[in-house]
């Protein structure tokens, strides 16, 4: 055995909701002195927490899991960690893997195949790869219309149904999600958020705001060519000229 504090040791987190699958990975990885399993997680929430707590070098990540799927876990990490996906069968994801992921393992896999993936991951560490957000966004199986928004707060994960959102506010390269008087920040651009929202329910009323039209109470003229939207909870948002046009088109 090498010294467990060897700088070459890869800190790894393995995430799979099935106990036998985790046991197999553990068994195969235990023989490798260059790998240290810092956490084993059975679902996405645990994975997000474990990454925040133990700062791993590599993730072995199952895709179909309860609560959060593998893509959603990636989306929440907000930092680049090399990922090896593990899945039984998902044609949809495979295409994206070919483009972006460090590697992927198809269940069932052999020890050699796992070793190969780890070698590839080791080569990737430290070198700039595709951004993890790019990866998450390009492979998300739910990229049709967004129904729930995932926000991480430290090691806690919040799931906000889009129906509960009052409005989105741009904040540099982040989005602030306002819902029921609470606001949470997420690393994502407002334009990207807008692309994934249902256009019948959400309107970009301003460069910095997307409004849930069901929350709109009234629109007041503020100055020439400038209006403000008043929401049912009393909040006031600026409405640009083009935003007003879009709003009028929808209503």
């Amino acid at each position: 055995m090498t010294d467990s504090n060897s700088p070459d040791r890869l800190k790894l987190i393995l995430v799979d909701d099935e106990a036998p699958a985790r046991a197999l990975l553990r068994e195969l990885l235990e023989d490798r002195p260059d790998i240290e399993i810092v956490a084993e997680c059975a679902n996405g929430f645990e994975a997000v927490k474990a990454v925040a707590d133990s700062d791993p070098d590599l993730l072995l990540l199952d895709i179909l899991m309860p609560k959060l799927n593998g893509f959603e876990v990636l989306e929440l990490l907000e930092r680049d960690i090399p990922v090896i996906f593990i899945t039984a069968f998902d044609e949809h994801a495979l295409k994206a893997f070919d483009v972006h992921a460090v590697d992927y393992l198809l269940k069932p896999f052999t020890r050699d195949r796992l070793d190969e993936a780890l070698a590839r991951a080791r080569g990737r560490i430290g070198s700039p790869g595709p951004s993890i957000r790019e990866l998450a966004e390009s492979t998300d199986p739910g990229s049709r219309t967004l129904e729930r928004i995932l926000v991480r707060d430290g090691s806690d994960v919040h799931v906000i149904p889009v129906d509960d959102v009052d409005y989105f506010e741009a904040d540099d390269d982040r989005v602030i999600i306002h819902s029921g008087g609470e606001s949470r920040s997420k690393l994502q651009r407002l334009a990207r958020m807008e692309e994934r929202l249902d256009r019948e329910r959400f309107v970009r009323i301003h460069r910095s705001y997307i409004l849930n039209v069901e929350r709109l109470s009234k629109i007041e003229l503020y100055a020439k060519d400038s209006r403000i939207a008043i929401l049912s909870d009393g909040a006031k948002l600026p409405v640009s000229r083009s935003g007003y046009a879009r709003l009028r088109d929808l209503l």
Binding site: A88, F89, L106, K107, F109
Partner: peptide, 11 residues
């Protein structure tokens, strides 16, 4: 089928 094969692989 894939899942069962993986169970076998694990066991």
């Amino acid at each position: 089928l894939f899942n069962s094969l993986n169970s076998i692989n694990a066991l």
